[in-house]
């Protein structure tokens, strides 16, 4: 498959999950979820705080044991003993877990050694990952002294070091300012296309899922409530919204197209706003609440 058209959906599924569940005591964190991710897809898992996103990633990467369900990579059943499957996976956790006393290069070095890399080949990979992440000048800076955005990029560079086929990113842009966030999106697209990496990311930013992802899965309270391309999701709710400003609330009505919305608009004499549907509206329609607090 060429990097120019990574979105061929008829190739075998990179990830397939069936009936995956996990509880902590009485809290059900993930409840019988099913989904597939295709090779080369940029896939987003969208949900509010506590929805079960991190728990899902932790099960997919072998850090937590599922109570039930199965995970397959390329049709092979995953369990943490399958070292060859672990070699395929790169993980960027929600929390920047760098060794703060060690330099950027040393952090990468240890990761490479953990993945069985060695010598000149490893040094080359370290150099090219630092370059890719724009961190060459920070090579010998202790990780603890990097800015938030640089730390995030270093964690991503580390996850890419062993050339994984699938990259998991748990809230990659959390804590970044809007400008850095956009740069990070471009960076993730670059990874997806240049490194031919399948990307599975979680987020609670609507815009992130909408602009970045090929496909979005919406999760709320441990259950998957909808899935599809951002366009499909919006279409199912209605592409246009009228926000009708009533005395004490804003009521939203959804329409398949602009013409239908305009027709309705003419019947109204209160103050009204017409706009395109966002994934936030989709979430609101499905759950009656907002994603972002």
């Amino acid at each position: 498959m060429s990097c120019a058209d990574p979105k061929t959906f008829n190739t075998p599924d990179e990830i397939e999950v069936r009936g995956l569940s996990r509880s902590f005591g009485k809290t059900v964190a993930v409840d019988r979820i099913d989904f597939q991710v295709g090779r080369g897809e940029l896939f987003a898992f969208l949900g509010p705080n506590g929805a079960g996103k991190t728990t899902t990633i932790n099960m997919l990467t072998g850090l937590l044991k599922p109570d039930a369900g199965e995970i397959h990579y390329h049709g092979q059943r995953f369990d943490p003993q399958r070292l060859t499957l672990k070699q395929l996976i790169g993980v960027v956790p929600q929390h920047n877990n760098l060794d703060r006393e060690l330099t950027a290069a040393e952090n990468l070095l240890i990761h490479g050694r953990l993945f069985g890399m060695w010598g000149a080949e490893l040094q080359q990979r370290i150099d090219s990952c630092l370059k890719f992440a724009d961190l060459t000048s920070k090579r010998d800076t202790p990780a603890g002294q990097l800015s938030g955005g640089m730390k995030r990029k270093l964690v991503i560079a580390r996850a890419l070091l062993h050339e994984p086929e699938i990259l998991f990113l748990d809230e990659p842009t959390v804590g970044l300012d809007p400008h850095s966030r956009r740069k990070m999106w471009a960076f993730l697209r670059r990874i997806n296309q240049q490194q031919r990496c399948t990307i599975f990311l979680t987020t609670h930013y609507i815009e992130e899922a909408e602009t970045l992802a090929d496909r979005v899965l919406i999760i709320d309270q441990a259950r998957i409530i909808a899935g599809g391309t951002p366009e499909q999701l919006k279409q199912s709710t209605g592409n246009f919204v009228l926000d009708i400003y009533r005395a004490d609330e804003i009521e939203s009505e959804f329409f398949a197209d602009r013409r239908a919305a305009m027709q309705r608009l003419e019947q109204l004499d209160t103050s009204v706003r017409i706009r395109e549907t966002t994934l936030e509206d989709v979430f609101l329609q499905l759950t009656g609440k907002r994603i972002a607090p």
Partner: peptide
């Protein structure tokens, strides 16, 4: 606290 231990658990090693 630093959660570095995750790195060891994620690596392909017994």
């Amino acid at each position: 606290y630093f959660k570095i231990f995750e790195e060891f658990l994620l690596a392909p090693l017994q």
